[in-house]
Every structure is written in C-alpha cells, then in structure tokens.
Design a protein around this nucleic acid. Structure first.
Lengths: 203, 203
DNA sequence: TTTATTTTTGACTAGTTGGTTAAACTTATT
DNA sequence: AATAAGTTTAACCAACTAGTCAAAAATAAA
C-alpha cells in the first residue's frame, strides 16, 4: 500500500460523485468517471469492483451528508421558534453549497426505493420521534400543534427547505420571465420560511 | 391509414409513459416498451423514429398535464382563502391519481434543463404575473403579502403540494417507523396545507 | 541490488442497446 | 381479382458498455 492509493481512491470517488450527481446511476458511464479522475477505466474496477459498488459508496456518503443535516435541530437547546430560524438558516446554507444533492437523492430513491430502506433501517425514528415529543411537550400547548399534525408540520418544514433546490430547473425558468434572481430568492428564503412557519403555528 | 394505427400508436404511447415514468429516459429500454405494448421493437421506430422522439412526445404530454393543473386557480372567481382551499384540494387529488408525475418531471429536468426551457418558452409568465397582481390587488393589503414576497409564497404553495409526492420514497420509510399511513397523510394534507398557508399570510 | 508486492495500463470480450432492412401480412383502391 | 399502400415482423448490425486480463510500471521489502 503506497501513500498514493488513498489519493487515487479519493480522486475516483470525487469524479464519481460529480458524474452520478449529474447523470444519475443509469445515465452515468464508467469511462466518463475514469476520464474525470484522469485514470484508466480498469483502475476503477481495481478500487471499486463494480459500478454498483461505486454507486453505493457514493450514494451512502451523500445520503448521510444530507440526512445528518437534519439531526442537529433536535439537539440544540433553543426555543421552538429559534430552532426553526436556526434550522432554515443552516440547512438552506448547506444546500446552497450542495445544490444538486436533493435532486440526486430523490431521483435515485424513486428509481430504487430499496436503496433507502436498506440505508435507513439503522436509524431509530421512533426514538427521535419520542424525544421531540418529550422535549417540546411543555412548549407545544402554546402553539397550534397537536400530536397528529406533527408529521404534517415536519414534512412542511422539509418541503420549504428542500423543494426549491429539487425544482430549481423549473423555478429558474419562471423566475427569469418575471425578473427574479434564484440566488437572491434562496437567500431570502432562509428568513421567509422560518417566519412563515412560526406565523402558521402560532395560536 | 387503417383504423388500427391510432390504436397501436396509443398502445405504444401508454407503454412508453409507464416505462419512462418508472425508469427515466436513461434507464428506459425500447425493448421493454415494446414488450409492454405487446408489439415488435421495430414497430416502435415505425411510429416514433427514435427513442428521443418517443421520449419528447411523452414528456411534453406529461409536463403539460402537470402544469395545466396550476392554471385554473387564476381563473376561478373566489376569495384568496377559498382559492387556496380550492387549489390544494384539486391539485393534491390530481397528484393522488398521478403520483409518479412530480418525481419524473423533476428528474428529467435536472438531467436536461434544456428540455423545459424549450417547452416553457411559449408560456407568457409575465402576463400571468401581472394578472395575479391586478386581480388580487385590493385583497392583498388585507394579508401579510408584499409584491416582493409573492415568489416566496407561490413557491411555498407549490412545495407543500408537490414535495410529498416527489419525496414519497423517503416519507414512507420514516412514516412506517412511527405508525403513520402515507395515503392518510396525503388526504389530510389537502386541508392542512390550505389552512397552514392562510394562517401564515393572515395579518 | 534483487525480489516481492502493489498500482496502473492497453487491449480485449461478452452482452446490451438503439436502430435498420427486407420480406410477410393486412387493409384499402381500382 | 389484381394492384397499391400501409402495417407488422424476424433477423440483423454497428456502436456502446461494464467488466476482465496479462503485462508493464512503480513502490516496498529483503
């Protein structure tokens, strides 16, 4: 094992990430990945035996990167309102730096739902669920939130943050026609989304 | 031209729709489409010269189906609040009947942004934009809506309706773990989303 | 330096895929 | 019935693609 192999493995991984994000599993070509990594195609199979192996590695890493960004909210010791402000600010900033992540993950999950089931079976959602309920128990009565509406509110929060990036291609076309800049829109969204949700759940 | 050819063309189109929705352009196989249509592969190329032709036909039809569902809101003569209730009820019901549409369209647009630009260059967004402004001019001052926040609000509305279907694969896994049924969640969303937005934009 | 081990490459292969073609079949026209 | 036109098929092809392999190059061990 020379010190070089980690370097090449990383080069391959980065190239594969770019190509898979752009073309998806079905549209990606091993030759294309090899070219971008500046190596021979055979070397791909030396480090990652098959296209599936390589894809799984990339997908697992990107999915973790994505979902881990949801976790810190539950740990921060803030009021519900500040938690919302914190979340949208942090999460949208993260997506600004990884704009293709949502589209990539949604696409691959739709084409292969099995993949996410395998990936998420370790996560203990029931526990997270109970933690949230417990942690905000006293606070919830102050808001328009019942236990039954929590799934609606949680998915609403995720939608407001993630969807603009997943639908960026459409938004940009519409925005172009009415003189709105996508980047500026995203920047404003950090605050807008937080205040929108807060307003909606306030009694 | 026998009366048969329209029948076969439709059979092909329906089969192609199913396969493209499920696998995407890159993952779809002409042989698979031919099999589902119950015909020879050569006959595909007799009706639609290439895979691109066939895909373009399917995509154009599905995209139109999707976006046309946004139009009726602007014509209905209802108060803003009832318009919101009307929209979410109608649009989510439509998506219940076409659950794979959002994922398919988002995916293909992300992989080929050119396609939507070509498709949408006929639509006069500036005109629609001005119509909305004009039509709700008197009403807007009653709500927390300024001209600058309209793009935020419009995209928020779209997100709340479309995202759950685009991210269904993820939602279902999470829901399974906490005992929530996706179909029931969607049914409840029709009313929840409307009231959520109304609450958020009310002064 | 010599030998063993790991890394990298060019050439190759078996299988797949979109697309073609000539002939057979069906339907309409005379 | 005979001819023409449109429809459908089986067999085929060229290009592409994931994956292999043996040999060369580079690195580590002796």
């Amino acid at each position: 094992m020379s010190g070089n192999d980690k370097q090449t493995e990383d080069k391959i991984f980065e190239a594969a990430t770019l190509v898979f994000e752009e073309k998806g599993m079905a549209g990606a070509r091993m030759q294309n990945i090899a070219d971008r990594a500046g190596i021979n195609k055979a070397l791909l199979h030396y480090y990652f035996r098959t296209k599936d192996h390589l894809f799984d590695a990339v997908f697992a890493k990107l999915a973790q990167k994505m979902f881990m960004k949801f976790a810190p909210i539950f740990k921060e010791d803030l009021s519900l309102e500040d938690k919302l402000r914190f979340f949208f600010r942090e999460h949208i900033t993260f997506l600004q730096q990884n704009p293709k992540l949502p589209g990539f993950i949604l696409n691959e999950i739709n084409h292969n739902p099995q993949r996410i089931k395998k990936l998420m079976r370790n996560i203990d959602f029931r526990n997270i669920w109970l933690t949230i309920l417990q942690h905000h128990k006293d606070e919830l009565y102050k808001y328009n939130i019942t236990e039954e509406t929590i799934p609606q509110i949680m998915t609403t929060i995720a939608s407001l943050s993630v969807f603009p990036f997943a639908a960026r291609g459409i938004f940009e076309v519409v925005f172009n026609n009415i003189g709105v800049d996508f980047d500026k829109y995203i920047e404003e969204r950090k605050e807008f989304a937080a205040e929108f949700v807060i307003k909606a759940i306030t009694k």
